[in-house]
């Protein structure tokens, strides 16, 4: 907490992830500043999601370091990473399908709750209070992403765009300092994309740093302050959107892919 507001919230140093012979992430270093929107782009299979998985503890990096908020979290387990303040969404939505939207968000709140087994077992007053508070907070988050009226529906019964929003609400419920969004606009209509960009701005307004993977260049250019481009696991460019757009290697990487 004593960190200056302007410092880096996430620093990756020489991060490498190998699967057998395949190098999915190759010696990537990058710094994300507190309070910015940082985008990670690259062709399919460039290792973007793998990089996310290394940050969130789903994978253990083969080498390199992950520094979050000034602390080394390399090799932490996913739940430890979440507790430190990194939340994420998934590329192919992973909601708790047969739980209500409200419960999905309340699960996100889990890590900030204090109730122990005994409190729950005997419904002690402090547990009841906490439950009430958490329900309020969860409803507030559902309103924040605009799906409050579906609070009691099963997550799986939501429309596609609403599911993406619910996933964001669930991630926000963990009180993150850094939010990782994995292709949040995938499959969205132009209108939904505009709404998403507004939502990201609102999230930023809560003092949360956003780190996103996105394919849609309009979205990326519209909201992110800095961009890193990955290709075959390597970082090939970094900088503000306008610069990256003109970078020869980036154009090659994308053209090579489509050719």
């Amino acid at each position: 907490m004593s960190e200056p507001a302007a410092g880096n919230i996430l620093e990756l140093t020489d991060l490498t992830k190998r699967f057998g012979g395949l190098v999915a992430v190759d010696n990537v270093s990058l710094n994300i500043k507190r309070g910015e929107v940082f985008a990670l782009i690259g062709p399919n299979g460039a290792g973007k999601t793998t990089l996310f998985n290394n940050v969130t503890g789903l994978f253990k990096p083969t080498s390199g370091r992950v520094l979050f908020d000034g602390r080394d979290i390399t090799g932490f387990k996913p739940h430890q990473v979440a507790r430190r303040g990194i939340a994420r969404t998934f590329q192919n939505i992973r909601l708790f399908d047969y739980m209500s939207c409200l419960d999905n968000v309340r699960v996100g709140r889990h890590v900030r709750m204090k109730a122990k087994v005994w409190d729950s077992l005997f419904k002690l007053p402090r547990e009841r209070k906490e439950e009430e508070r958490v329900t309020e907070e969860a409803m507030e988050l559902l309103r924040f992403v605009g799906i409050a009226k579906h609070a009691n529906q099963y997550a799986r019964n939501l429309a596609y765009g609403q599911q993406r929003r619910l996933e964001i609400a669930r991630a926000l419920a963990t009180d993150p300092k850094l939010l990782l969004l994995d292709e949040p606009a995938a499959g969205f209509t132009p209108q939904e994309k505009v709404e998403l960009m507004q939502l990201v701005k609102k999230i930023l307004g809560r003092g949360i740093t956003v780190f996103l993977i996105e394919h849609d260049m309009k979205v990326v250019m519209g909201i992110s302050e800095r961009i890193v481009v990955l290709d075959h696991g390597e970082k090939i460019a970094e900088g503000p959107p306008d610069e990256v757009r003109k970078d020869v290697r980036v154009i090659e990487a994308y053209l090579g892919k489509s050719a």
Binding site: T56, P78, D103, A115, S120
Partner: peptide, 27 residues
Amino acid sequence: NLYRSRLGRAWMAIREDEVAAAAMGIN
């Protein structure tokens, strides 16, 4: 009581999707 508590929801979250549950901070 357990079913309608933090722990009960964590159980169901694990039942539904263990990876997502872990990413939400559930040990």
